[in-house]
Amino acid sequence: MLRLLSLLHATAVAFPMLGAEIPLGERTKMSWDAPQNGDDGVDHFQLFLPRHWSKAQSWPMLIFLHGAGDGVWDVMNSQSLPRLLSRDQSTAFDPRKSWEFDFDGRHYVNASFADDLGFVVVMPQGWDATMRPGWSRPRLERVRALATRVASAYAVDPERISLAGQSAGGVGAWRFALEYPEFLSAVVPVCGALPGDSARAAQRLKDLSIWVFHAADDSAMPVELGDGAVAAMNRAGRREPARYTRYRRAPPPPDPQYNDMVGHASYDLAFRDASLYAWLANQRRGAS
């Protein structure tokens, strides 16, 4: 563990600072001058700028919160949205440049994902120096500060800032939305649990666009968590019902160390869904 922390610290100094020019159409590890409010993580992040990005127009932004087991770069980038945001989607356990798999009678592949996505994507590295997982309130405060800075530096439309999270990051997505509903145009919790009083949460979020993803066979986060959250949201007199994609089955995470988490990787299906990005691009803050 100490060796890993030393490696992370040693390599962090080489990361470009927020505001730097970075390659387009490729995720880049970056640093920023995070607020000095304790050892709360989010000292580093990854940033993706669309292949045709320029400051001549404003862009929608998507904030992505990783799961509890995904905080170290190589794990974070081995699955889900971060893996897709690279032209080279190979990993230590999968040498194929384009990540593809067969599941439930379908073939999943999207070799051009990084070329086609039209969002600025900010992916905070949430773990702190003690490697504690989870998205606490101080960390989410830093996520908001980071997103505000990224939006200013990279021509983001402040009316189109959405947030998605998976697993523990799905819990974090709900928490962020409850803390800062006015900051977001939409929230997308994937295989995560809604914390606290669901009726109170539903009232607070009734004007925010919501799309929940979960799988019926999720062995790590029971699907009843997704069912209950969506039911609570839709009892709150929303102008637009919360969307819900409830997969019959989902694969385990692609990293072999998590093979026992059957049904948990609904994120590997959700973030390949082109309709999700079309929907997010059409959301505006306060206009659900």
Rank of each mutant, 00 (worst) to 15 (best):
V122A: 08
M123N: 10
P124S: 05
D128V: 04
A129V: 08
A129R: 15
M131E: 10
R132E: 12
R132M: 07
P133D: 10
P133M: 01
G134K: 03
W135G: 01
S136A: 06
R137S: 12
R139A: 12
R139N: 03
L140S: 04
E141Q: 15
E141P: 00
R142C: 07
V143E: 11
R144T: 04
A145Q: 09
A145R: 01
T148I: 06
T148A: 15
R149G: 04
V150P: 13
A151P: 02
A155T: 09
A155S: 15
D157V: 13
D157R: 09
D157I: 06
D157S: 08
P158H: 14
E159S: 10
E159K: 14
R160Y: 10
R160Q: 14
R160G: 06
I161G: 01
I161K: 07
S162M: 11
G165A: 09
Q166K: 03
Q166T: 14
S167E: 12
G169T: 09
G169E: 01
G170Y: 05
V171S: 00
A173V: 02
R175L: 06
F176T: 01
F176V: 01
L178V: 03
E179S: 03
E179P: 00
F183A: 11
S185N: 13
V187E: 07
V187T: 04
P189C: 01
G192D: 02
L194D: 06
P195Q: 12
P195A: 12
D197C: 11
D197Q: 04
D197E: 14
S198P: 15
S198W: 08
A199T: 15
A199E: 15
A201V: 06
A202Y: 10
A202Q: 11
A202M: 13
K206G: 03
D207L: 06
